[in-house]
Design a protein around this nucleic acid. Structure first.
Lengths: 137, 137
DNA sequence: GTAAACCCTACTAAATTGATAGGATTAATA
DNA sequence: TATTAATCCTATCAATTTAGTAGGGTTTAC
């Protein structure tokens, strides 16, 4: 299941991308419009900022803005930041690989091979999708 | 993340499929060979039996066996039984559809559209994979 | 009739998720 | 310079899920 965190994060990014203009968007505005608990959203946008996807401006008239063009923001990056590894098992993760305790030989593991296929097909979607695609009405 | 339940379940099914012969396989044998807690595995195989994927024989020399040929057991079915819906959000699930509380219009929801693509690509993998594929050495 | 197997229900500890609380810090502007 | 509006940061918490354990009940082969 997709976490609320990721769902909210994607909606917020879409909102910011759609707002288009060069002024930062405030958390309160997004929260209200997208029906997201404001404090929760704050922490999500903070995560996205720390990951380099969003920039922020403090103080009055502050808010969040995209650090790159929507068409440059790939879902692979966004999903990894919000949801964590794309692979369903660590032994198949490109970025967070970990060996299984059981499993003497990965290449003979039926689960391993199936999950590689799932990972690759999901990756293909995320690699071919950017925030610009999400933002289309 | 793939749950241990699903991982164990897939390994157990593979084990049974590989054993080939027409005699039922005991939980204790699978548990030992695949390093799975026996009581936990019991409950998993029970689930698979109730779902019609496995059959069982009670009493001495009892155990579990496949109800169909490995090549007839599709991953879509197995995954739905063990892991639940394949879709990452209920509003995109074919078998367990549920509307989102937020989201006035699904078709305009960026998350919705992305998750449909992910669902379809995952589904394609699961539809094209059977237990026979998993069981190949 | 007894041992070996599945069957069933209930419980539990740990981790994760989805928040909330409360304030610290920073910046615009009156 | 004081005020206000915003982000930033840490801590806490309740609910849920996960992964497993416990303890028998039931069925069948021999």
């Amino acid at each position: 299941m997709l976490s609320k965190k990721t769902k909210y994060g994607l909606k917020a990014l879409t909102f910011i991308a759609r707002s288009g203009e060069d002024v930062p968007v405030q958390v309160s505005v997004i929260a209200k419009s997208e029906q997201i608990p404001q404090k929760f959203l704050e922490s999500i946008l903070l995560t996205l900022r720390k990951a380099g996807i969003l920039g922020s401006k403090k103080g009055k008239h502050g808010g969040y803005y995209l650090r790159s063009e929507p068409s440059e923001i790939k879902m692979t990056d966004v999903m990894r930041v919000l949801e964590g590894p794309i692979a369903m098992v660590p032994c198949v993760s490109l970025n967070y690989y970990e060996k299984c305790d059981d499993c003497p030989d990965e290449h003979k593991c039926s689960v391993h091979r199936l999950m590689i296929e799932v990972r690759d097909s999901t990756l293909k979607v995320f690699r071919n999708t950017t925030l610009a695609d999400l933002s289309k009405v």
